[in-house]
């Protein structure tokens, strides 16, 4: 495990949401989050927990088709899916760079598609399936804040 990484074993939706809420309490305007995990790992559940903790009142839906969804809460939340983006230039063309500099919180799925896009201080979150369908292993690593 990389230095500065915390590992959490959570159970059920409540466990994932509680961890997301704890993270949300520590977020500042301009923060960027890279969310890693395979299809079906539980990324949606984590994002919905984060949205709820940021007091977003609308449904936090999949950004797969739109690439970016924007929500107004305690902070503006940009939910980005880079799955079908190839490299930083395409991400910037799609307006992702604007999100990162807009003073909200930007949560990016599949950030590895455009690794150079994520600023220093990005919070990396890895979600992996646990021993059973209900449990997840979630690792959180925060880069140095600039």
């Amino acid at each position: 495990m990389a230095p500065g990484t915390t590992e959490h074993r959570v159970s059920g939706v409540e466990g994932t949401h509680a961890l997301a809420a704890a993270l949300a309490a520590d977020l500042r305007p301009g923060d960027a989050i890279a969310l890693h995990g395979d299809l079906g790992a539980g990324k949606t559940t984590f994002v919905q927990g984060l949205g709820a903790a940021l007091r977003v009142r609308e449904p936090v839906t999949s950004p797969t088709f739109t690439l970016v969804n924007e929500y107004r809460g305690a902070l503006t939340l940009y939910h980005v899916d880079l799955y079908r983006i190839d490299g930083e230039a395409e991400a910037v063309d799609a307006g992702i760079g604007d999100c990162l500099s807009a003073g909200g919180v930007t949560l990016v799925e599949w950030a590895e598609r455009a690794p150079g896009l994520m600023p220093p201080g990005t919070i990396h979150i890895d979600i992996e399936p646990g021993s059973d369908e209900e449990s997840r292993v979630i690792r959180i690593r925060r880069g140095e804040r600039p």
Partner: peptide, 24 residues
Amino acid sequence: NAPCGGMRRDLCFSFSGLKTALLY
């Protein structure tokens, strides 16, 4: 418990869990 944006919860859809069920 997700927010429904003013819609009735029992008229809303959710498919993310289906994908996870398939994965498992």
